[in-house]
Amino acid sequence: MSEEQNEQKKLVELMRDMPIAMMTTFGLEGPHSFPMARQEVEPSAELWFITAQDTRHVRELGTDPRVSLTFSSRDSWVAMTGRAELVRDQAKLKELWNTFAEAWLPGGPDNPDAVLIRVDVERAEYWDTPGGKISSLISFAKTKLTGDTFDADHGTVRP
């Protein structure tokens, strides 16, 4: 397996426990960040989000499709950049619909305000502290005692 394939596999593993992203748009008023729930379980070069069409972030995507996504867990972090597109696809919306979406958009996938955002990922980067909290504490103590840098696994993926 190539290094790129290993990094892609590592990214997929890390993101299993990271369903919520902070999405940043770059509209006319400058950067705007907000939490969004990722709908696909397996991350790929394409990520899906359900949203209401009458929102600031949807308007901002109309002027500038660039987005930044950040995900985090207790001991891992992922940052992605890409281009977002508003998608009105009723079949895909029904496929991705879940109870979490229902909490934000009552009425189910037939709610006329419900739309999809598809993000085509151009670059992803991750940081991981393997071994969890105990390993992180040991690495931190080692850093303080020896002056070495903190041990973290880092990789970049370009789908």
Rank of each mutant, 00 (worst) to 15 (best):
E4A: 15
E4S: 14
N6A: 13
E7G: 00
Q8T: 12
K9I: 06
K10T: 14
K10N: 08
K10C: 05
L11R: 00
L11E: 01
M18H: 11
M18P: 06
M18K: 10
P19W: 00
M22D: 05
M22K: 14
M23I: 01
F26G: 13
G27K: 06
L28M: 13
L28K: 15
P31G: 06
H32W: 14
H32V: 01
S33N: 14
S33I: 10
M36S: 08
R38D: 13
P43D: 03
P43I: 15
P43W: 06
A45T: 09
E46K: 15
E46T: 15
W48G: 10
A52M: 10
Q53L: 01
R56I: 06
R56T: 13
R56Y: 04
R56G: 07
V58G: 08
R59S: 10
L61W: 12
L61R: 02
G62H: 01
G62Y: 05
T63Y: 03
D64A: 11
P65T: 08
R66N: 12
R66A: 07
R66K: 14
L69G: 08
S72T: 12
S72N: 14
S72C: 11
D75N: 13
W77V: 12
W77I: 09
T81R: 12
G82S: 07
R83I: 04
R83G: 13
R83W: 06
R83T: 15
L86T: 15
R88K: 15
Q90T: 11
L93V: 07
K94A: 15
L96S: 06
W97D: 03
F100R: 13
F100Q: 14
A103G: 09
L105I: 13
L105R: 12
L105M: 14
P106D: 08
G107T: 10
G107R: 08
G108A: 03
P109A: 15
D110E: 15
N111V: 07
D113T: 11
V115D: 04
I117A: 00
I117L: 02
R118W: 08
R118A: 13
D120E: 05
A124K: 05
Y126R: 08
W127E: 04
T129Q: 11
P130Q: 05
K133G: 08
K133Y: 09
I134K: 09
I134F: 11
S135A: 15
S135C: 07
S136K: 00
S136L: 08
S136F: 00
L137N: 02
S139P: 04
F140S: 11
K142N: 12
T143D: 05
T143N: 07
L145F: 13
L145E: 10
G147W: 02
G147Q: 09
D148Y: 04
T149N: 12
F150N: 06
A152I: 12
D153L: 09
H154N: 10
H154M: 08
H154T: 11
V157G: 00
P159E: 05
